[in-house]
Structures are given as structure tokens and as C-alpha cells.
Design a protein around this nucleic acid. Structure first.
Lengths: 244, 244
DNA sequence: ACAAAAGTGTTTATTGTACACCCATGC
DNA sequence: GCATGGGTGTACAATAAACACTTTTGT
């Protein structure tokens, strides 16, 4: 859209409509993904207001006049987890007038990918938010169109994780090949062959194999790897395409 | 986001902020694509207001309180082309507070795919809109963040056209294999092998070969094809994945 | 020494890519 | 009969998929 002060000439209606009593609100909702073990999880909270008390909901916040959508989304994640500069992607904007019965709210959905460990202290105390495995979400009572938001976010993640190296955002700096594979299996929703997966990933030359090995989980210990961001930038600039 | 009347309890600020004098506006902008010959085109108009008089701009419209984003986008396309029920996809929402200097406007970008022929009568008269080849857009002066909108829309189209049969929206009911290939070449931005392309497309069994042949363009005449929507629905339901 | 997970190669099937000639028709 | 774009098949390369045994090491 163009210039609001002049738009009525151009579009055939005045921009002043919005000053009416039933205003239009903008908000963001965040599908916050975290991964551990063998399954991707999403952070939800119990909705505290009638008539949906106790149902699950995404966390969100209104968009203030001088704050961008991206910032509003970051702030929502930070308020909840204490983490700054989390990897986020915009998913979709939901603007049906009756999606929330009480108000006209236009909500832009984002997903966030974060490493779960550092968030654990803050989470439980302040907002009563809970990590739930993504496979459980379809069985839950979830408010408004949040099920659709979750679905779109997961679909977008599923696509993007295959052509951009964003999966690493969900893992610690050091991770094992098994952890990486479990992550992809959970996001894509199907098993991946152990040998073929590791071949494909390593062939891209984006992972540094560290000397250090994982302790505790097995006698032998699995090698840790590190995603080499600089290397990826170099290769990408030269036309390399990430693909899983 | 959730319930506006109660949200201040929950998010730590009042929902009433929006009643301030500098209100927040919502709009949609449409990247309208049309195809003929060998190149994809986009419909732009000359921006009539200072300080961008004469620059190119996408067509858009404000989002009225009781109209959804999808409807607002449809209406914009209809106002401009006279066409109803055009294929549209939401692309991205732009919400930087200073993206339009004069107002805070949150704009959701859509792309539309339409068959050019039926729009030609209405176009020129009412809005002075012009079809421009997509390869020209980077050389034009385009207002605000509309270049970015165009770019995102084209990227999304490029991706989607490969895994969903949406390209047919840009063609007439009957089209030749050459037209279809030219379309894909223009969208993807690279040449496609004639034989390999037709093999790949026909193997999916989504096209009906018609008896009728194209006249005028060649002595022999190329066969017309028709995209079989029902067939696609059946196959898709059975797990078939479209892919180019 | 043994249990438990880590690590590693080869074979086959599938898909993609490159490429050139004959065909049908209107003039 | 000839000029013009339409239509078709094959050989090779690259990628994906299936599959099982040996290695390491803590107990």
C-alpha cells in the first residue's frame, strides 16, 4: 500500500475509517520450537481467560506503534525465555475479522528455533509455559486458530530445513551426528538411513569434526561436530546450495 | 495473539495504546503476475503522489474493519482487472514502523496469478496500470519497499511453482507444451530442455492432450493440452506429489 | 569378555541430463 | 517441394536407497 494521507483519492475510500470505535489490532504469535531427545517440542501455555480457560495457546503480544513485527516477535520470545537474538521466521498473517470473537485482531505468526537448555530456568516460573512434543499437539485443545498457526509453522519449517542450514539453531554448539539425525527425523516425520544421512551431511563440508567425544550415553562415545557458519557463507556466496 | 480485552494482564501492557492519535493502519499490496510470449510480466502503476510521482508501485488497498486480508487482496485485483476469484497467495507482511515515512502501515503482500487476455480491456482505462516484464523491474524506480515485495513474491512463486500445479493459472484453459515450457523458463529463470521437460510433465498424467491444434504459429500446429484439475485432486489425495 | 552404541562401503535402482533427427503441414 | 516449428528416444552420469558387519570402550 501507498501513502495513507492521499490514499482515499486513489482507492476510493478514506483512510479515516480506522478511527471508529472498533479498532483494528495487530499482534504477533510465536510458535517456539525446541528439540531434545528424539522429538521436536513446542512451547505452549495454558490460556487463562474465558471461555477457553485451560486450553493451550501460543504466546504472543500486541504490536506497539513504534515497534516492527520482527521486534514484537523477538520481544515475545525474550519475555518468555529470557533469550535474545533468537532465530525467527515469519510464517503467515491471519486476518479473518472473526478469528477472535471479541476483537478484530490481525495476527502475524512467527516460528522461533532455540536451544532448549538455556531457557529451562526461566520458563516454568514466570509464564507457566510447557514444552510439548509436536506429535501431541493435534490431540490438544488449542484456542482460536492457533492449531492452524502451528500447522503452517511446522510446514514452513519442514520445507526450509531442507534447503537452509537452520536446523543447527535447535542444537547446542557441539552436537553428535545422532542428535542431528534425530532432529531431522522429527521435523520431517520419517526415519532417515543412518549411513546415507551422515554421508550426505558430511559431503557438504559444513561440519567440523571435533576431537571431543560425548560421554555417558555410550561406551564408545560419539564424536561432536560443529556447524561452520563462516564456511557456509563462503560456499553459499560461491553458489553452493544446502540440501537435505 | 489472544483476547485483547484481557491481554494487558497477560502481556504487561494495555491494549488501549492503539487509541492514540497516530494509529496503525493495515493494507495489502498485490504483485499481479501475467504471462505471455516468453516472459512473465507484472502489473504496476505510476505512483501519483509526492515525493514519488511517476515511480512505479504495486497496487494495494487498506484493510477495512470487517474485511479479511484475503478479501482485501481479491478486491484490489478485482478493482484493477475486473477479474473475480483470481488465484492468490499471501507472501509476507511488512511491518517496519518507518517503511512508509508518513504513516505506520502494516502491509501484507500477496501475489496473484491470472490469465492476461481477459484483463486487457479494463486495465488501461481505469488505473493506468501497465504490464512490465519481470526482468525490467530491477531497473525501475519503485516506491518504498515494493522492490522487496516484488522480490519475495517472485521467490515464493519460484519455489511453489515447482511443487504445486499453479503455473496453469497463468495460462488459458488450452495451452501448448511450448507455452508451458516458456512459462516455467521465465519463472525459474533458466532454459529447460524441450524433450526432458515434456517427458517429465506428461509422465505425471495431469494433462489431457486435446484433438485441437494451435493455428497460425507454425505450419504443423502444436497440440493443445488441458490441465485436469480433477485428476490432480485424485492423485494428490492418493499421495502423489507434483514436481517440476 | 561382553554389552551397547558408533562408525563405515558397496551394490542397485532411480532420476536427471545431454543430445539430433524425422514429421506434419501451409504456403 | 520446401521451409518451419513440432514431436520424439537413447545413452550416460549422477544421485538416492537399501543394506550388515566391525570397532571402541566402560564395566
Amino acid at each position: 500500500m501507498t501513502n495513507a494521507t492521499t490514499a482515499h483519492n486513489h482507492n476510493g475510500f478514506s483512510a479515516g475509517y480506522h478511527a471508529g470505535e472498533k479498532s483494528l489490532l495487530n499482534s504477533v504469535d510465536c510458535v517456539i520450537f525446541g528439540f531434545w531427545g528424539k522429538e521436536l517440542h513446542v512451547l505452549l501455555h495454558r490460556f487463562p481467560y474465558e471461555p477457553y480457560v485451560g486450553d493451550w495457546a501460543l504466546l504472543g503480544g500486541f504490536v506497539l506503534p513504534n515497534v516492527s513485527l520482527d521486534e514484537a516477535a523477538q520481544q515475545t520470545v525474550e519475555r518468555l525465555t529470557g533469550l535474545e537474538n533468537v532465530y525467527m521466521e515469519q510464517v503467515y498473517t491471519f486476518g479473518n475479522p472473526f478469528r477472535v470473537p471479541t476483537d478484530r485482531i490481525i495476527t502475524t505468526c512467527y516460528y522461533a528455533l532455540l536451544e532448549v537448555e538455556p531457557t529451562l530456568p526461566k520458563l516454568s516460573t514466570q509464564y507457566g509455559a510447557t514444552w510439548l512434543p509436536i506429535s501431541e499437539v493435534p490431540n490438544l485443545d488449542v484456542v482460536y486458530d492457533h492449531p492452524l498457526m502451528f500447522q503452517k509453522a511446522l510446514e514452513q519449517l519442514r520445507r526450509k530445513v531442507r534447503y537452509q542450514p537452520i536446523g543447527f539453531e535447535l542444537l547446542a554448539e557441539k552436537f553428535t551426528m545422532l542428535e542431528l539425525r534425530n532432529l531431522y527425523e522429527s521435523i520431517l516425520g520419517r526415519p532417515l538411513d543412518k549411513r546415507n544421512f551422515s554421508k550426505k551431511i558430511l559431503k557438504m563440508n559444513l561440519l567440523q569434526k571435533l576431537k571431543e567425544k560425548q560421554k555417558g550415553t555410550s561406551r564408545r562415545g560419539a564424536h561432536f561436530f560443529r556447524f561452520d557458519e563462516n564456511r557456509y557463507q563462503e560456499l553459499a556466496a560461491a553458489g553452493f546450495l544446502f540440501e537435505v
